[in-house]
Design a protein around this nucleic acid. Structure first.
Lengths: 102, 102
DNA sequence: GCAGAGTATCGTATATTTCCGATGGACAAG
DNA sequence: CTTGTCCATCGGAAATATACGATACTCTGC
């Protein structure tokens, strides 16, 4: 793939979007937003995917900065990173302002 | 890829996200948002990509419903579809509300 | 120390995406 | 009618993403 010259902000936004733009990962984000409890094993039960696959998706989301992982004794607890969602909301707000005179 | 059972809203949102979650396409959306003029050939000049590649990206964005293409004589004019951006902004707003009690 | 539950990582097969050059179609000018 | 411009589509090559099973790791409780 050709990276294309882009600003840091663009790169950051695209990275966040790529992380969420996947059915399984978007579902994970929605699950985390819905339940207050940031359970991890429950995600494996909630998704029709293998445990290793879910774990990798969580890794992608964590690397992108969308979720945060905390080790809570025997299991790991994940929760959303509000700043990431706020950033995306802001980006879309900036885009929505202008359009070709509709 | 395994599609995962999902609602229509989820599918719609993910489809929109997948369309924008690419450096070249995100750049295109930003260019269209910045300039009022929805020129098409200028996009090819603005991007370090072949004409055919840009055309395919535009097709993806159009299929996703993010942009609209209008034939204006010899050239084609593209502009943003405000409803799509509004939908995404709304989706993120719904997500941002909750988080694991930070 | 040992066993068990819960996660993370590795290696790999498959499917998809991305990009390009070449080709084809539509339109305007001469 | 011929030419040139602009855009869309085709076919294929290369890179990437996705999902899985197997395996290694961490912490708890006995």
């Amino acid at each position: 793939m050709k990276p294309i010259a882009q600003t840091d902000d663009e790169a950051k936004t695209v990275a966040l979007l790529r992380a969420i733009a996947h059915p399984a990962r978007f579902r994970i984000v929605k699950l985390l937003a819905a339940r207050d409890t940031c359970v991890c094993g429950d995600l494996v039960d909630a998704l029709p995917l293998a445990q290793s696959t879910v774990s990798e998706h969580l890794k992608v989301l964590k690397d992108a900065g969308i979720i945060r992982g905390t080790i809570a004794g025997p299991n790991t607890c994940y929760c959303l990173e509000p700043a990431a969602l706020a950033w995306l909301e802001h980006e879309f707000g900036a885009l929505g302002s202008a359009c070709c005179g509709v």
